[in-house]
Design a protein around this nucleic acid. Structure first.
Lengths: 253, 253
DNA sequence: CGATCGTTTGAGTTTGATCAAATGTGGTGG
DNA sequence: CCACCACATTTGATCAAACTCAAACGATCG
């Protein structure tokens, strides 16, 4: 069975709000094309206009900012089902770069189509907003991570998060999932040096919490890893109870 | 002349999209009440439901997350005109706390009213979205700040940002503005110890870049401070060119 | 079979943390 | 008005987490 390009995104949005068949059809029809990228290709850079929004179909990508002297901070990962990105309201020019970290397929949705859909469907509008706010919550947690956690906690936390996110989209096989990151990319994510990333990884392995062979991460003791990470998955808002829907009787204003 | 509560917010939103008189009236009328907080009062905490959205009228507040063992990271500041916060779509419970850092007045807008307004006005919807995306951009820059910049750069960068933000709302008098932060709050913001905050501040003073007496920050050499900070104000998106408006001829899809 | 990229190891250094205590300041009440 | 208290700032001394530099080792690939 071949999945429609927007299928995974729809599934994610329905985490928050049940969409009408109209909404779903419209989303499916909004996709104008598919594009495949290789590893380490720039998808969106500072100077592009932004006529399209991309839905990640498969693969792995990231958003990063670079300082003048070359220091680099990865500020977000994109996994299948993620929108990348709804910044169509903003800016003359983007203030950062989006690039793949593995071969990645995306579906294009013209910005104008999406805007029109949002005007037409309050439900879809809210679902997209929800997804944006979850992204923001994740970004805040990354700030806490880099600001307050030690190297070991920090790395453990990132792995817990990615485990939860991949699990939510059904891409965890048992205790293993693909996390196609080099140690130097991990370093740019966690704000540590590559050398220290290497040693921290070794420590996590030594404690029997996980193993990382090539691009596959296997978690041997999730509970222990979460304990090390001081991980509280609340910020991922996967338990969203479909609140605040139009006409939802549970909500009183 | 007494300003209507929503005036500053409207001015900010119009940075992005000119609102209709209807939109503005509706926003003004949406305010159901004003509330004044003292210093260090919790405005929103983890367990509240979220029936209202607050517009900051005056004062200074912040959003922070606390780890189980007490470590704290401030992840955002709120200044007059900011919405705090549009998380009405999310969560059963908030994953963080919002508290004042100085005496602060806010205007309440019922969540339901705001949702209804967004359904009714595509322009307002987009303007609010724009403001949310700018908040997200700021949050990303804070991540870069904590992740990649040294203590000196980091502090300089925060001051540059706050200068720009206060300037944008007309709250900078010459080269001075109120920044009611203790060194320990600065520490929780910049992910440094209070001791190191103190020494870093001294270094900035020694270099004649600024002075901070009590709650007032005075910037003596903005260009030099920005140079130290590797500050690029692009992420604040204050130059938003009012793109992507419905019927805006400059935009082609 | 080099070449390239990523990982690993070792040694020495640095930035910023921690601990402890002194000093300054603003507010309160006697 | 002063004594006192709580809190914030400042200073000094020591410590440790993480960085830098340098080099070796290992995969993968044309």
């Amino acid at each position: 069975m071949i999945e429609l390009p927007a299928a995974r995104l729809i599934r994610k949005l329905e985490n928050f709000a049940e969409l009408s068949d109209d909404d779903k059809d419209a989303l499916h029809n909004a996709v104008t094309g598919i594009r495949a990228y290789g590893t380490h290709e720039v998808m969106v850079c500072g100077t592009d206009p932004l006529p399209v929004v991309d839905i990640i179909l498969s693969g792995f990508a990231c958003r990063f900012k670079t300082l003048a002297d070359g220091r680099r901070q990865i500020v977000a990962y994109f996994i299948p089902g993620d929108l990348c990105d709804i910044r169509i309201f903003l800016l003359r020019r983007m203030d950062h770069t989006i690039a793949t970290l593995a071969p990645t397929k995306v579906a294009h949705v013209p910005a104008g189509t999406l805007l029109a859909l949002m005007d037409r469907s309050a439900r879809l509008n809210r679902a997209l907003w929800w997804s944006t706010l979850v992204d923001e919550a994740v970004s805040r947690e990354w700030l806490v991570n880099v600001g307050q956690r030690t190297a070991l906690e920090r790395m453990a936390h990132l792995f817990c998060e990615m485990y939860a996110r991949f699990k939510a989209i059904g891409l965890v096989a048992g205790t293993r999932f693909e996390l196609p990151l080099t140690q130097s990319e991990l370093a740019d994510t966690l704000a540590l040096s590559t050398v220290h990333i290497n040693r921290t990884l070794q420590e996590l392995r030594r404690q029997q919490l996980l193993s990382m062979n090539g691009k596959v991460l296997e978690i041997h003791d999730l509970a222990a890893l979460q304990a090390v990470a001081v991980f509280d998955p609340a910020y991922l808002h996967v338990d969203a109870q479909r609140r605040y829907l139009p006409g939802d009787s549970r909500v009183k204003f």
